Structures are given as structure tokens and as C-alpha cells.
Simulated assay, not measured.
Amino acid sequence: MTSSSAPSAPRPGFYSAGHLPPEDSVGYLMRKVMSSIRTQADAQLSTHDLTYAQWLPLFKISLSANTTVASLARDLETDPAAMTRALDRLEAKGLVVRERSTTDRRVVQLALTPEGQAVADKVPPVLADVLNTHLSDFTHDEWQLLLRLLRRMLVNGEALRQPRSTDAD
């Protein structure tokens, strides 16, 4: 009996359980870079009395006209309770309003107030500055290569989530 698909090529062995130093771990380095980006953005946005847990949801809401509490929590990879607490603080500051859906009472839509939009508009220039600083000695080609490599890693990771098909005979 023959299989309808060719066997997959062996995966390269960049890491092993016995040798995994953090300074060479892609995951560790990406986490450290993200922490640095977040810390620098936080420092600049703190002048607007915003923390990471507040400016990131504001920014994400500003990008979409149809944001719900549940979709925002999923997008930011946080639990709904933590998202609700962050939104409570943003609402208390007069930056966000929540409106219950008229068709499904379980759905809560989010919108920025005019003041919330003004604050959200301050995020992109800060993020651009922070990201450009982190990439300051990269060439344009290196930046594009980094983006391509990270996208490939995302595709590879997404493939791990897909159920593997088995040939039934």
C-alpha cells in the first residue's frame, strides 16, 4: 500500500534538550526584545498616564470600528477578566465606552471617546520611534529579512496547530 503523500523532510536540529543556552534561544531573545520594546514604549507613554495594559487596548480599539471585549481579549492574548479590569480603568478615565449589543446581550462593543481617540493617536508615533531605535543599525534589507524570517516562524508555528492528516487504507 502506498501513501498519498511523501514523507516530510527531516527537521533541522538547531536545539537539543541537552544544549539550550538562553543566549541562543530564539524564544528567549524574542521575549527580551519584546520586553525592551514594551518598557521603552511604557516610559514614553507614561507621560500620558498610561500603562502597557491601558495603551495597548486603546491602540487596538482605534484600529477597528467593530471591537468587542471578547475579541480584544483574544487579540491581546489575555483573559477576559484582566481585559475587563483594564477597560474599567480606561472607562473611568473617560477614554472608552462599552455598549451592550442590542441583538446579543452577551456581546459588549467597545468604542473610544473623543479623548480616548486623541490619546490613542499618541501611540503610533511612540511605537514607531521605539521600533526604529531597536532597528537603528539595521539596513533596509536586514529589516525586510527579519520580517520574512519572523513570518516564516509564524507559519511554521501555525502548521503545528493544524491536525495532521493520516492516510486511511
Rank of each mutant, 00 (worst) to 15 (best):
residue 129 D to C: 04
residue 102 T to I: 11
residue 67 T to N: 12
residue 81 A to S: 05
residue 101 S to D: 07
residue 16 S to A: 13
residue 142 E to Y: 04
residue 46 S to A: 10
residue 117 Q to E: 00
residue 142 E to L: 02
residue 166 T to P: 03
residue 75 D to S: 08
residue 159 A to G: 08
residue 63 L to D: 06
residue 107 V to N: 06
residue 164 R to K: 08
residue 70 A to W: 11
residue 42 D to Q: 12
residue 19 H to Q: 13
residue 75 D to Y: 15
residue 158 E to I: 15
residue 42 D to T: 05
residue 130 V to E: 01
residue 20 L to E: 04
residue 4 S to E: 11
residue 72 L to V: 06
residue 118 A to Q: 07
residue 107 V to C: 11
residue 90 L to H: 01
residue 50 L to M: 09
residue 161 R to E: 12
residue 60 K to V: 15
residue 143 W to C: 15
residue 167 D to W: 01
residue 64 S to Y: 00
residue 89 R to V: 07
residue 134 H to A: 08
residue 139 T to S: 10
residue 132 N to G: 03
residue 145 L to M: 07
residue 95 L to H: 03
residue 8 S to G: 13
residue 13 G to A: 14
residue 131 L to A: 04
residue 42 D to K: 09
residue 15 Y to I: 00
residue 151 R to K: 12
residue 9 A to E: 14
residue 120 A to I: 02
residue 43 A to P: 15
residue 110 L to V: 04
residue 128 A to C: 03
residue 121 D to T: 13
residue 41 A to E: 02
residue 135 L to T: 07
residue 61 I to W: 02
residue 20 L to P: 04
residue 160 L to W: 03
residue 47 T to P: 05
residue 21 P to D: 05
residue 25 S to M: 11
residue 69 V to P: 06
residue 141 D to P: 01
residue 45 L to T: 01
residue 58 L to N: 04
residue 155 V to F: 14
residue 38 R to M: 10
residue 38 R to A: 13
residue 96 V to E: 02
residue 68 T to I: 07
residue 7 P to N: 12
residue 96 V to W: 01
residue 8 S to Y: 14
residue 90 L to V: 05
residue 46 S to L: 11
residue 13 G to V: 05
residue 105 R to P: 14
residue 71 S to Y: 09
residue 92 A to G: 02
residue 164 R to H: 09
residue 168 A to Y: 09
residue 139 T to G: 09
residue 29 L to M: 06
residue 67 T to A: 10
residue 98 R to V: 03
residue 65 A to E: 08
residue 116 G to L: 01
residue 115 E to M: 05
residue 93 K to A: 05
residue 14 F to V: 15
residue 24 D to W: 15
residue 123 V to H: 05
residue 92 A to N: 08
residue 169 D to N: 06
residue 163 P to Y: 06
residue 51 T to M: 09
residue 91 E to V: 08
residue 113 T to A: 01
residue 131 L to P: 00
residue 121 D to L: 04
residue 12 P to R: 15
residue 138 F to R: 08
residue 147 L to M: 07
residue 81 A to W: 10
residue 98 R to D: 00
residue 98 R to K: 13
residue 33 V to G: 07
residue 86 A to W: 09
residue 79 D to I: 13
residue 148 R to T: 06
residue 123 V to T: 07
residue 18 G to W: 00
residue 142 E to T: 10
residue 65 A to F: 11
residue 22 P to G: 07
residue 145 L to V: 03
residue 30 M to L: 13
residue 59 F to D: 06
residue 12 P to L: 14
residue 22 P to D: 04
residue 94 G to Q: 06
residue 144 Q to H: 14
residue 111 A to D: 07
residue 137 D to P: 00
residue 112 L to R: 04
residue 142 E to K: 02
residue 3 S to F: 15
residue 68 T to F: 09
residue 20 L to V: 03
residue 64 S to M: 09
residue 32 K to A: 13
residue 105 R to W: 12
residue 119 V to S: 01
residue 76 L to H: 00
residue 99 E to C: 10
residue 130 V to W: 02
residue 32 K to E: 13
residue 1 M to C: 14
residue 163 P to I: 03
residue 135 L to P: 07
residue 145 L to E: 04
residue 116 G to D: 01
residue 163 P to E: 12
residue 50 L to F: 11
residue 63 L to V: 15
residue 13 G to I: 10
residue 149 L to W: 11
residue 72 L to M: 05
residue 114 P to G: 04
residue 44 Q to G: 05
residue 101 S to F: 06
residue 126 V to D: 07
residue 46 S to N: 10
residue 60 K to R: 15
